[in-house]
């Protein structure tokens, strides 16, 4: 194989990248704007911000990093990573909030 034909680099993909770019900018503005709204609780602010960040992150990963059309091997590696990443966060937080009854904190 003489060329890397796995990612077409034609004019219309440039347009795709630009659309993603605009979406990222809109997302940034949106998240700043949302942070100044006083939702009934701070938790909602957090969820909104993380959802926007997650969307932006997925756009970067999917289009700029071409994850949307990547090979199976890469997907396998990243799924393992995602699982262990979740395990690290979830189990650590769980462990640090599950105390035996009558434990005195602070």
């Amino acid at each position: 194989m003489s060329k890397n034909e796995n990612h077409p680099a034609t004019a219309h993909s440039v347009r795709g990248y630009l659309i993603v770019y605009v979406a990222l900018i809109v997302g940034t503005i949106l998240t700043v704007w949302a942070s100044f709204i006083h939702f009934p609780s701070r938790e909602i602010n957090i969820v909104v911000a993380l959802v926007i960040a997650g969307t932006k992150g997925s756009l970067v990963a999917a289009y700029f990093m071409h994850l949307i059309s990547e090979r199976k091997m890469i997907y396998s590696v990243l799924s393992c990573t995602a699982i262990f990443f979740t395990g690290l966060m979830a189990l650590t937080l769980w462990a640090l909030h599950d105390f035996p009854s009558l434990t005195v904190t602070h």
């Binding site: 942070s35 960040a53 992150g57 700029f64 990093m65």
Partner: peptide, 22 residues
């Protein structure tokens, strides 16, 4: 090198709301 750069960008996309906004 681009993949690495996008990753650095991606991290910042999370750092920004977490540290500045929330």
């Amino acid at each position: 090198s681009g993949l690495f750069w996008h990753f650095v960008d991606l991290i910042w996309i999370f750092l920004f709301p977490v540290l500045y906004l929330l």
